[in-house]
């Protein structure tokens, strides 16, 4: 359902969200636009609501008020199944941890989302595995991999499904600095190759600084640029 006159990849309008059982809203009347190919870093203190904002965008959670539109689709009226379809086909989420399916092999994990969305391309999956250095680990199960390797699998899985919008929540938060830099660089490189948009949630100013656009979430409001 394309919105009239809106060609943005991502568009948030006056979004407010309150946690269940919380007194005050985590953020109020937040608005944000993102173009295809644009890479955005979202920073903020612990508990500032930046992950929640990411979840709203990914159709993992719903806003109290305001609208969220991804690739011209308004998420607000979508039901459970509609949001699930959005997660399958349009967006891809990379979490800090616990995002692999332990019962499946690395190869199956990489192919999983792509197959769910019906966009499985074995060549592309193979290419991603190779680029991410996973070629020798395809038959292993996630628990047999190191943290960095696991996160590469998660990145491969997300990108294999060729989403138009990649959402990453502290994707390198569990990794040591050297590994984090490598993985981060690879991710950015691959995302930009596909021409997808990227929203990165991080508390690391260092990583945020590497992206083209930066927003800071503080006191329930978005502020352009890095927090000082």
């Amino acid at each position: 359902m394309p919105l009239k006159g809106n060609t943005m990849l991502l568009s948030l309008r006056h979004v407010t969200k309150t946690y269940p059982r919380a007194e005050t809203a985590v953020f109020r009347q937040v608005s944000l636009d993102l173009d295809a190919g644009e890479m955005l870093a979202l920073t903020g203190e612990s508990g500032s609501g930046k992950s929640t904002l990411l979840h709203l965008i990914g159709g993992l959670d719903t806003a109290d008020s305001g609208s969220v539109a991804v690739a011209g689709i308004d998420l607000t009226p979508l039901d459970d199944a509609g949001r699930a379809a959005l997660r399958r086909g349009t967006v891809g989420v990379i979490f800090q941890q616990f995002n692999l399916i332990p019962s499946l092999t690395v190869a199956a994990n990489i192919a999983f989302q792509a197959r769910l969305s019906g966009r499985h391309d074995p060549d592309r999956a193979r290419m991603l595995a190779e680029r991410l250095g996973l070629k020798d680990h395809l038959d292993k199960h996630p628990e047999q991999l190191s943290g960095g390797q696991q996160q590469r699998v998660a990145i491969a899985r997300t990108l294999a499904a060729a989403p138009r919008l990649v959402l990453a929540d502290e994707p390198t938060g569990n990794l040591d600095e050297a590994t984090a830099d490598t993985v981060f660089a690879l991710m950015c490189e691959l995302v930009s190759e596909t021409g997808a948009g990227l929203v990165l949630v991080t508390h690391s100013q260092r990583l945020a600084a590497r992206l083209g656009r930066r927003l800071h979430l503080g006191a329930g409001q978005l502020i352009e640029g890095l927090a000082v």
Partner: peptide, 16 residues
Amino acid sequence: LPQLAPVWALGLTRRK
């Protein structure tokens, strides 16, 4: 939950 959540996040409804 840790097994189910990723699958849910990747696009399966809770019903399913």
